[in-house]
């Protein structure tokens, strides 16, 4: 491999890139379903929207927990949004949500877990931090939530945080379920569990 390529991608092997991409593809099935649920509940207001937004965090949370590498959350989340384009008429917006959730996942992964601390409180903190950031970036801006009353806003933030934490916990449970099949042995999570 040339020096230039190694400098650009110091730690990503082809195996990791492919694994991240197919994880994203597998989650696309879920993301497409979430998109239709999101479209269906969008009109039910800020609470429903806050509740469903957390489901888009699932691929990013799974990627951070399994691959434990900077860039994993962004890659998996963005690719799952990209792969959803042919399967949903809201494709470009889903890609936008995927990219944004990936950035939020990266930020949260870096700030809370540093890609190596994954105790239960770290996972909860990881989800909660992501929920607050995403609420601030998406819901507060696009729905003009500044017009809502304080109790409504607080309840919406609470719902967003709860669903992001739930998504992070589901991702962890999913990772442990997949690990039992033996396919994660070449990932950071699989190696750590094997040596534990």
């Amino acid at each position: 491999m040339s020096r230039a390529v190694r400098l650009a991608l110091p730690a990503w092997t082809t195996r990791e890139l492919l694994t991240a991409s197919v994880i994203a593809m597998a989650f696309t099935v879920a993301v497409v379903s979430f998109t239709y649920v999101y479209a269906a509940v969008l009109g039910l207001g800020i609470f429903a929207r806050s509740a469903v937004t957390g489901s888009f965090f699932l691929p990013a949370a799974f990627a951070v927990y399994v691959l434990r590498k900077p860039g994993a959350a962004f890659l998996v989340s963005a690719v799952s949004g990209l792969a959803a384009i042919p399967f949903t008429p809201y494709g470009l917006l889903v890609l936008g949500i995927g990219v944004l959730t990936g950035i939020v996942g990266e930020l949260s992964g870096f700030v809370i877990t540093r890609y190596r601390r994954f105790g239960i409180m770290h996972v909860v903190g990881f989800g909660a931090f992501a929920g607050i950031v995403e609420f601030g970036l998406v819901l507060l801006s696009s729905l003009r939530t500044s017009t809502f009353t304080a109790p409504v806003l607080l309840a919406a933030i609470g719902i967003a945080v709860a669903t992001f934490v739930l998504a992070a916990l589901v991702a962890v449970a999913l990772a442990h379920a997949v690990r039992r099949t033996g396919v994660l042995i070449n990932t950071a999570f699989g190696r750590e569990e094997a040596f534990a």
Partner: peptide
């Protein structure tokens, strides 16, 4: 969908590893 996601992820990752080795 919930029941299918684990076997789907497992088979996808296996397939990815084979493709990565080939590449």
């Amino acid at each position: 969908l919930r029941r299918a996601i684990v076997p789907l992820l497992a088979s996808s990752i296996r397939r990815a590893e084979r493709a990565a080795l080939a590449m």
